[in-house]
Design a binder for these strands. Structure first.
Length: 561
RNA sequence: GCGCCUAUAGCUCAACCGGAUAGAGCAACGGCCUUCUAAGCCGUAGGUUGCAGGUUCGAGUCCUGCUGGGCGCGCCA
């Protein structure tokens, strides 16, 4: 319908150009938006406002000319000029209802597009180091990153999801010392406990498993504990594998899967870190000072230069970061989105600067970043800070166990990444209309229930009858619902383009609301078979779109509640 | 001090790359189940979009300054 109106306007503009009433070089991107207010019809355009200046006319005068030049169309019932010069379109009912058959034909492909044209995109997210269970912040990253992956996949990109982790640095050394202390029977209260050691109970679990000689599998590697209390390399390898497996279980409980797990150590093993350093030196962007090797990142927009090689000879994390991103580029990812906590935002300029300094043709501003703000968890209005196992933070698993996967995913993805998020455990747990997850799922279950009743009553949905009666869906509530359904493909595209999963969550609330309104206003199971089937078709279309949208969020669509 | 993010109804949040009278949900108040799931619907009330300027036909949205909040400012990651 929207495309039809754009076409009509396009013709009208061409006509006015021929007549010389519009300058020939006026080529506006014609924007047609769904009307906000139903008094404004179904769709509206600001075209006359945009073109008024180049045309040298008052907006309303130009709107008059545009409307007069519109080709006739069965799809449009009425056209009005309103306000400062908006052109409002009232669509014919059957033109609006066309979306219902389109949805039923497309099924779970409705809303998908080929816009990405198979371009390779990588989404990197979570990327937690294997030093403990995932926390709520990782959960937010997982919800956003996973939904982004699904959105990009749905819009025709070739998506790779990737999890990067540091398996060898100073933090891992700390992990090893912590586990070793536990292996020797020390607790965080003892004087022997390592400084800044990881104090959570899970460290004791790792130590126990290590001493028991357990075997763990993670990232396609198998590690068997040596059980030797003094073998630091063995403790390190086992602890990393153990905690990676723990995180995999967290992710599995959250239904998030990654295509690739990328180890920082592989960058060293394959010589990529050395290569990167040599390249940067060769390009003349480095200098020695205070016994360290520096990169002149200020030449690429950073506010200060950065150390690459410390005076002790080891590299800062920044160097493998650059090497890693160079590797992404070499793998053919013309688009990369890094989803991270905003507490890491200082790496953005730094990594981009390092990549520019490599001078290998990577565009400025590559890669993209989606940074999410902090998550605050509350229960009974009070901040929750600790978990039993992790000690110092709320784990993702705690949340999933307590409020369920669907609600956790929804709440963590439903808000703009930019906004600080308060995760209200009481609200997420509530099985009432306070809870948007249930509100949306309930709409889906309600349609299923009606369909079941239709079948029970021997009045199962008849597609042909429904299609022949779609124009009878002319109640205000039905038209509002159909217009909402028609917006779904645009919503998916916009959400993907803006990298904003929360738009899907928001859309689904609006859709569910329109559906519930309709459901209460118009009884589906009426005697009139034509009307009944048309309404069933509308319900099925709504169910389909709810299901498609929830799938993008990774939230289930139950048939009964 | 500098950088990034942010400020919208009592609360939690939207507002479609600048559009018409800023919208939902919760909380408050009043209605709706002998009819398909009341986990629902309808209605009432609730706002100087932090403050002050600017840009323009038009600003919650863009620009500048100020104020409050969050995060960051390591030869940590």
């Amino acid at each position: 319908m929207k495309e039809t109106i754009i076409q009509l306007l396009d013709d009208a503009v061409a006509t006015l150009k021929q007549r010389g009433e519009l300058p020939a070089d006026a080529n506006p991107a014609i924007k047609v938006d769904p009307a906000r207010d139903k008094a404004h019809g179904d769709y509206a355009t600001n075209l006359a406002l945009v073109l008024a200046k180049p045309a040298g006319l008052k907006p309303r005068e130009l709107a008059d000319k545009l409307v007069a030049a519109l080709p006739a169309s069965d799809a449009v019932r009425q056209v009005e000029i309103a306000g400062p010069g908006f052109i409002n379109f009232f669509a014919a009912t059957d033109a609006i209802a066309g979306v219902v058959s389109a949805i039923l034909d497309a099924g779970d492909t409705f809303g998908r597009s080929l816009k990405g044209a198979g371009e390779k995109v990588q989404v990197e997210f979570v990327s937690a180091n294997p030093t403990g269970p995932l926390h709520v912040g990782h959960g937010r990253g997982a919800a956003i990153g996973d939904c982004l992956s699904r959105l990009l996949e749905a819009t025709g990109f070739d998506v790779t999801s990737e999890f990067y982790y540091n398996d060898a640095g100073a933090q891992i050394d700390n992990l090893m010392r912590s586990v070793k202390a536990r292996v020797h029977g020390f607790t965080p209260e003892d004087a022997e406990w390592p400084e800044d050691g990881y104090r959570g109970d899970y460290i004791a679990d790792v130590a126990t498993a290590y001493l028991a000689g357990e075997t763990v599998t993670a990232d396609d590697r198998e590690v068997t504990a040596a059980a030797d209390p003094e073998d630091e390399a063995a403790i390190r390898a086992f602890a990393v594998a153990y905690l990676r497996r723990e995180q995999d279980l967290d992710l599995k409980a959250f239904e998030v899967e990654f295509d690739v797990y990328f180890l920082e150590s592989s960058l060293y093993a394959e010589g990529r870190v050395e290569e990167t350093v040599e390249q940067l030196i060769a390009n003349g962007h480095t200098y020695e000072a205070d016994g360290a090797l520096w990169l002149r990142t200020t030449a690429f927009g950073d506010d200060k230069d950065r150390v690459m090689r410390k005076s002790d000879g080891s590299y800062t994390y920044f160097v493998p970061d650059v090497a890693y991103h160079h590797n992404k580029w070499q793998r053919g990812f013309t688009r990369v989105i890094d989803e991270q906590g905003a507490d890491h935002h200082s790496t953005v300029t730094r990594v981009r600067a390092g990549l520019q300094a490599l001078e290998v043709g990577i565009p400025q501003g590559w890669p993209d970043y989606v940074l999410h703000q902090m998550v605050l968890v509350t229960r009974s209005g009070v901040e929750v800070k600790l978990s039993k196992r992790a000690g110092s933070y709320v784990t993702l698993r705690d949340l999933i166990d307590e409020v369920g996967r669907d609600a956790t995913r929804y709440f963590l993805a439903a808000r703009r990444a930019d906004s600080q998020l308060t995760f209200d455990i009481d609200l997420a747990r509530s099985q009432t209309n306070d809870n948007p997850v249930y509100y949306i799922q309930y709409a889906h279950a309600r349609v299923c229930s009606v369909v079941r009743k239709a079948e029970r009553d021997g009045q199962a949905f008849d597609h042909a009858t429904a299609m022949a009666n779609l124009e009878r869906l002319d109640a205000e509530q039905e038209k509002a619902l159909m217009n909402r359904l028609a917006r779904y493909p645009d919503t998916v595209e916009r959400a993907a383009e803006a990298r904003e999963p929360h738009q899907i969550a928001q859309y689904l609330i609006d859709l569910a609301s329109d559906f519930h309104t309709c459901y209460n206003a118009q009884k589906v199971m009426v005697d009139d078979a034509g009307l009944r089937n048309a309404r069933l078709a509308l319900g099925l279309a709504a169910r389909q779109v709810i299901s498609n949208g929830l799938a993008l969020l990774g939230v289930s669509a139950p048939e009964e509640m």
